[in-house]
């Protein structure tokens, strides 16, 4: 006998919106509670392959949203991007421990790795947080208004592909290297692609941040 599988349940898509080049936000019916920072498994078929996505909506909102980047050669994201309101998707219950910490923290994200932090923000959890967000293009700081309104200058955008006087030109790793020091008592939450997470972690360790203060969520 096998252990209970993480069951997929059918949900209706409420909206699918393209918010930047190749980036979509997909909202669907909510039939479970979750903690900001958790992920759900998504499939477009009942028995099809599933992938994990961070929830990108607030805990009290009446629906669940995920954020994703379309990978042309991928199986799932091109299919997800062609869905409309009323279409069905299959969703697992939420899981994961990349959760909000009330203490002072750096949130460091690249690309759609911003999703768990946006979920925390939308759930009212953002005290003593400094957010670094890395993107290649300026248009991809799609949540700028909400993050800036809440975090002010503690929302730091790092753009490697385009220049803007209000934005650090380079990657988040370049920004971290440019800082003379980093607070040792802060926690550092990293979310995004492995390359960013691994390189950032190396920098933090070089700067004597205890590695039990580094919490990583990797998109795979």
């Amino acid at each position: 006998m096998h252990v209970q599988q993480h069951t997929l349940t059918r949900q209706s898509v409420l909206y699918s919106e393209k918010i930047a080049e190749d980036v979509f936000i997909l909202g669907f019916q909510k039939n479970f509670d979750f903690e900001p920072g958790q992920v759900v498994g998504i499939s477009v078929e009942e028995n099809g392959p599933r992938r994990l996505y961070s929830i990108c909506s607030g805990k009290e909102e009446d629906h669940i949203a995920i954020l994703y980047n379309v990978v042309d050669e991928g199986y799932l994201t091109p299919r997800l991007s062609s869905l409309f309101a009323g279409d069905s998707i299959w969703v697992t219950e939420p899981r994961g421990d990349f959760l909000y910490d009330p203490g002072p923290s750096f949130w460091i994200a690249s690309g759609t790795g911003i999703a768990p932090f946006y979920s925390m923000l939308k759930s009212g959890n953002f005290d003593r947080k400094i957010l670094l967000h890395g993107e290649r293009h300026l248009e991809k700081f799609y949540f700028y208004d909400e993050f800036y309104d809440t975090l002010g200058h503690n929302y730091i955008r790092c753009c490697s592909g385009e220049e803007d006087p209000a934005v650090f030109h380079g990657r988040v790793t370049g920004y971290l290297r440019s800082l003379p020091s980093l607070p040792l008592h802060y926690k550092y939450y990293l979310c995004g692609r492995a390359e960013m997470v691994v390189e950032t972690r190396d920098i933090l360790i070089e700067r004597d941040i205890p590695f039990n203060h580094i919490i990583s969520e990797i998109y795979f």
Partner: peptide
């Protein structure tokens, strides 16, 4: 979790 980020999602 500190050693292996996968522990966050597949404990």
């Amino acid at each position: 979790k500190m050693l292996m980020p996968v522990q966050q999602v597949y404990p």
